[in-house]
Design a binder for these strands. Structure first.
Lengths: 109, 109
DNA sequence: TTCATATACCTAAACTGCTTAGGTATATAA
DNA sequence: TTATATACCTAAGCAGTTTAGGTATATGAA
């Protein structure tokens, strides 16, 4: 499923609003699990997104070595939390709007 | 609202599955109306999309002169109708999947 | 009359956000 | 030793938008 164009930032922000801190690889696994294997975030999309969100001040990073491997844990900043709420609301509104188009009969209720 | 990236073809196909034939300008007005002014299809997106769908064999065109102005009426071909059903189902599935991410608690019901 | 707005079509360049396709490195099971 | 999983990264290509133009007719307002 590749329809999530434009929503990757929102997905990441929303996940982090529920999980305190997560690392990149963990995010891809979690999204895959929650979406029942339907949304597979490619690494070429994920890592640039994380760096973008960090450079905008929405995420902060902490690098830890676990089992002799690096993990970069990301967590929301205060602004990131606000952004998460805003983006989530926008996505909900978008979904409601798309449902109007998919179920036009409901417009006449 | 600019989140509809990648869904324009689906919106057009779905509309045409309900309206027999429509012309470009009419489509933008209809989508604006149905979406309560939230989805504004730019002409730079619309016309290439219509030409794309036509070149793929999903639409056929009939040009009419109405009130001294040209209108290009588009309607679904047989394949276009199949594509409309497929794409609509995909969009519905996408929406349901996004709702899983937005409301993760519901996953545990 | 002329100016803005609406109707109706179109396209090219720029931009964005993905995918594809590479790369490094460690751990583990077959 | 080979494949798979874990864990990070980036550059080039591509698709589908936006932006910003273009043509032309009709209509209502100043």
């Amino acid at each position: 499923m590749i329809l999530y164009k434009g929503n990757l930032d929102t997905i990441i922000l929303k996940l982090l609003s529920e999980n305190d801190k997560m690392y990149g690889y963990e995010i891809t696994k979690k999204v895959k699990e929650l979406s029942h294997n339907k949304i597979i975030i490619k690494e070429g999309a994920l890592y640039p997104a994380l760096h973008r969100l960090k450079s905008k001040g929405f995420l902060e990073v902490e690098t830890l070595k676990v089992d002799n491997r690096l993990r970069k844990y990301y967590k929301l900043t205060e602004n990131g939390n606000k952004e998460s709420i805003t983006k989530t609301a926008e996505l909900k509104e978008f979904i409601e709007t798309m449902q109007l188009l998919l179920n036009p009969k409901l417009s006449f209720k």
